[in-house]
Design a binder for these strands. Sequence first.
DNA 1: GAAGAATTGTCCGGTGCCGTACGAAATGTT
DNA 2: AACATTTCGTACGGCACCGGACAATTCTTC
Lengths: 250, 250
Amino acid sequence: MRFFYHVKTAHSQMKANPRPRNGFRNRILKRLPAVVIRRLRKGMRLVELNQWDSLYEPHTACGYVYFPETGMASILSVLKDGTMTEVGTVGSEGMVGLPVFFGAKTSARRVCWQFQGSAHRMDAELLRRETRKGGALSDALHLYTQALFAQVSQLATCNRLHTIEQRCCCWLLTTHDRVKGDELDLTHEFLSEMLGTRRAGVTEVAGTLQRAGLIEYRHGHVTVRNRRGLEKAACECYRVVRDEFDRLLG
Amino acid sequence: MRFFYHVKTAHSQMKANPRPRNGFRNRILKRLPAVVIRRLRKGMRLVELNQWDSLYEPHTACGYVYFPETGMASILSVLKDGTMTEVGTVGSEGMVGLPVFFGAKTSARRVCWQFQGSAHRMDAELLRRETRKGGALSDALHLYTQALFAQVSQLATCNRLHTIEQRCCCWLLTTHDRVKGDELDLTHEFLSEMLGTRRAGVTEVAGTLQRAGLIEYRHGHVTVRNRRGLEKAACECYRVVRDEFDRLLG
DNA sequence: GAAGAATTGTCCGGTGCCGTACGAAATGTT
DNA sequence: AACATTTCGTACGGCACCGGACAATTCTTC
């Protein structure tokens, strides 16, 4: 069964491992030594998260960091006029709340949750104490920071140079890597906001992709039908970022 | 004399302090305790850097990190077809080589030097040893990381939503903050590459800005004539990033 | 089943920018 | 001074995308 799944999706590495060894799916927590986990357990709690849940608001302190298990978070830049665009995503490979790790109490960005899922919520102070003098968690977060940098900076270039269609494929692939199954609950409206374009633009592109058999969608649901095709239609950015993630965290 | 300079440019905070107290202009080094500096001195050397000097190549290890004193570095994403766009800049407020700090030997980006200037070059291994267990340098680099994040992610949004003219002003302001004086040695061709647009596009914008009296240029030189005007013509991104830098590092 | 809300399909004029190209001006070279 | 080289000015067709608007479809609620 598991093997089947593997073959079908052909991208095993990023997909959330369905049978965690350590009680954790989150890649960072999963690899921590038992000693560290023992220290952290009391300040941690598994919480359910739903679409649109806000984890961080701009310039507002938040007492927690989050280690996603399933689902993902979007990091958003918010302009004065209220326009939001996604500048990065965090799945089970990472942690939401790097500013805490860096000793900056707040950040200028918004972080909100996408889809349904869960995450281990940890006390911000606890994270600070645990990482202040280095150690396994600090090392892991450093590497993750580098990976996130790769993602954000690639996105900056991508936003500048690539078409809506390419960027849309890119987003679908990245997201597909981070959720269970092939179906995503999202509307054109929503996707357009992430990509920073018009809703109508997404509708046009989605139509094209559907006619090409790459995806299928109806009323708030998108199903990935042909991942390899999507990868071909996407710009190189998806691969670049994913390779960097694999190299650093794999 | 110094007061004059101050008044003329009207943006004291980011401009490189002409009279460093500690022997350092670099904001990170400047604030390190003497004990730390003593440990680092032997592995450090002040080097001259010139336009186009390459500090890091993609996927290539480099044995050094750099603390700029004057001038600045550009972090560039390079696509397969050779297109380069800038995703961030590093001046005397920061350090070039964060991947080393993070324990990633290499990164996927290129870093090259802009204008003439100098930087304290430090042995990568030394930096690793000094920061591995936390400490003052580690703390400073963490905050700087957060600031750079702000810059890169704002740029991602900026690239998506703002016009060439706005982004051009943004770039000029950021750069102006990082060099001595009001004159920048740069061509339209060069600027267009940084912004990820056509050279002709930059020429058009530059003409507009010159006619408006904000800048003046001829054959490879641009002079900032009206900073406040530039700030008005720029998008909000410049301010957002600068405020974040001041908040975190100021 | 009907009414209402959410989501998607489509169209139109407008515009910012692209790709390209070529000439003019400024500078460097001998 | 004559030449080559670099840098800048400008123009043209084309296209991706925008802003806005409105209708059609699908799902939800009653």
